[in-house]
């Protein structure tokens, strides 16, 4: 392990651009209210958000892979808000911060169930966050996806609905 404070190559165990930008926005608003610097919620984070899972990937599969970085304390599957079926993400909680960092470094970006998965450090699971926030219950990214992804319910739902409607209209025209 390197002992440098500033490394000569990038580190893979940093929060993602997504988290940072989301936080920046929040921070900007916060700063309007108070000038105080809030403590970094990720400084001791033991939880990871895991994305781009197949809807069919099971808890056991996730456990099998993620326990290679340390004992898994808790695993929360992401569910469709309406159907309560897996919708392609989960939270993995470890006992230690180091295990979570190691997971970012060694498992994030590798394959599970033959899909490249994404891991991101997370301040911690809270009730309610296990549900998809998309209009139809799943994750937002699965609403408008134009590519067919058999592991994530085919085409995006909104996109597929839209397609269907258009096809129906076209069909009506031809009559």
């Amino acid at each position: 392990m390197s002992t440098l404070t500033h490394n000569t190559v990038d580190r893979l165990d940093r929060p993602s651009a997504y988290y940072i930008s989301k936080n920046k926005r929040r921070k900007f608003q916060d700063e309007l209210e108070s000038q105080e610097e809030a403590p970094d919620p990720l400084a001791n984070a033991t939880t990871l958000y895991v994305g781009n899972l197949s809807f069919y990937t099971t808890e056991e599969q996730i456990h099998e892979l993620f326990s290679k970085c340390g004992e898994v304390k808790r695993l929360v599957m992401g569910l469709d808000r309406f159907n309560k079926t897996p919708c392609g993400f989960c939270f993995v909680e470890y006992y230690t911060h180091q295990d979570a960092l190691d997971c970012l470094k060694y498992v994030g970006g590798t394959k599970l169930d033959e899909r490249i998965i994404r891991t991101d450090l997370d301040p911690g699971f809270e009730e309610g966050r296990q549900y998809g926030r998309g209009k139809s219950g799943g994750q937002v990214r699965d609403e408008y996806r134009e590519e067919f992804d058999p592991g994530r319910g085919g085409y995006g739902r909104a996109y597929a609905d839209d397609q269907r409607r258009r096809e129906e209209e076209e069909y009506g025209k031809g009559k």
């Binding site: 390197s2 490394n7 190559v9």
Partner: peptide, 10 residues
């Protein structure tokens, strides 16, 4: 290998 464990791509 052991020093650069923080970036396996590197």
């Amino acid at each position: 290998i052991n020093l650069l464990d923080f970036n396996r791509n590197a």
